[in-house]
Simulated scan of single mutants.
Amino acid sequence: MKILALFSFVLLLTACGSASLKEHTNTTPELKLEQFFDGELKAYGMVLDRSGNLLRRFEVKLLASWQGDEGEIKEWFVFDDGEKSTRVWQLKNLGNNQYQGTAGDVVGIANGKTEGSALYWKYDLEIPVDGTIYEITLDDWMFLIDEKRLFNKTNMSKWGFNVGEVILYIEKI
């Protein structure tokens, strides 16, 4: 019975703290992935642990293009410890402000939706740590600042527990 009460309490706390995409319905400028993610972009970011302590910094070079409702974003990461990695997103505009995306380290399909100047994605990502691959759930929020700048805040969790956060600033070159 105590386990059930604890589970109910944790569920209540997480439900109360959830952000809502609807809160951004009339915000401007309006985020359209095909418009912002087009051409060359540059990003600067950091990875924080579950306590908010800085783990890593990184830079990303992005090259994005769209053909109709299908887009591709190539990302080249360089971390402050010298590690390099690449991710290639295949995106699809499903209409009605809904998007889907896949990439080599994304488990299944990333599903997202825009409202006003915000995008919310949720997906699972495989992250290598010391030779082991971990599957982490990402709650990914993007906020368009203006036509050239975007802020990205991602909460990372495993089995519903917070394990870290990624903060990223992206700008068009």
Rank of each mutant, 00 (worst) to 15 (best):
K42C: 06
K113R: 05
F143T: 08
I167N: 07
K92F: 11
K158I: 04
I170Y: 01
K32V: 08
F37C: 02
F77D: 00
E147M: 15
S65C: 10
L150F: 07
A110F: 05
G101C: 02
D124N: 07
I173Y: 13
P128F: 02
S8V: 14
Q35G: 06
E75Y: 06
L55T: 10
Q35P: 03
V78Q: 04
E126M: 13
S117D: 06
L12C: 12
I133L: 12
Q35L: 14
N152K: 04
E70W: 06
E23Y: 07
V60K: 00
T102G: 08
N53M: 08
I145W: 11
M156I: 11
Y169V: 13
T132P: 00
E30R: 07
K74Y: 10
V88W: 10
L21E: 00
K74C: 13
G45M: 09
M1G: 11
L91M: 05
N97W: 02
A110L: 01
E30Q: 14
S117P: 04
N97G: 04
V10T: 14
L33H: 07
E72G: 09
I145V: 13
N26D: 06
I73R: 04
Q67F: 10
K172F: 07
K22A: 15
I133M: 15
G160I: 03
V10K: 14
L119K: 01
Y99I: 05
E59M: 11
I3L: 11
K122I: 05
D146T: 08
P128M: 09
K32F: 11
A43T: 08
F36N: 01
Y123F: 04
S157D: 14
M46Q: 12
N93W: 08
A15W: 09
G82T: 05
F77W: 00
K22F: 15
D80P: 07
E34H: 09
M46I: 05
S157A: 06
N162F: 14
D130P: 09
V163G: 00
L21Y: 00
R57S: 09
K74D: 04
E83F: 10
Y123L: 02
E126Q: 13
W141V: 02
C16Y: 12
N93P: 05
A103C: 07
W121A: 01
V166C: 05
E171G: 08
D69P: 14
D38Y: 12
P128T: 08
W89F: 11
F36D: 05
P29V: 11
S117F: 03
L12W: 05
L31Y: 02
T27R: 00
N152R: 11
V47F: 12
G160C: 00
V166S: 04
S157N: 13
E40I: 09
I127Y: 05
D130Q: 12
K113V: 02
S8M: 12
V166H: 02
R87V: 13
G108C: 15
N162Q: 11
R50L: 15
R149C: 03
E70P: 03
F79I: 03
I73D: 03
G112R: 00
A110P: 03
F151S: 10
W141A: 01
L150R: 06
D81I: 01
Y134N: 10
P128A: 14
F79G: 02
E23K: 03
R149Y: 03
L4C: 14
G164V: 06
G101T: 02
I145M: 11
A15V: 11
F79W: 11
L4A: 14
D105L: 14
D130L: 12
A43Y: 03
N152T: 06
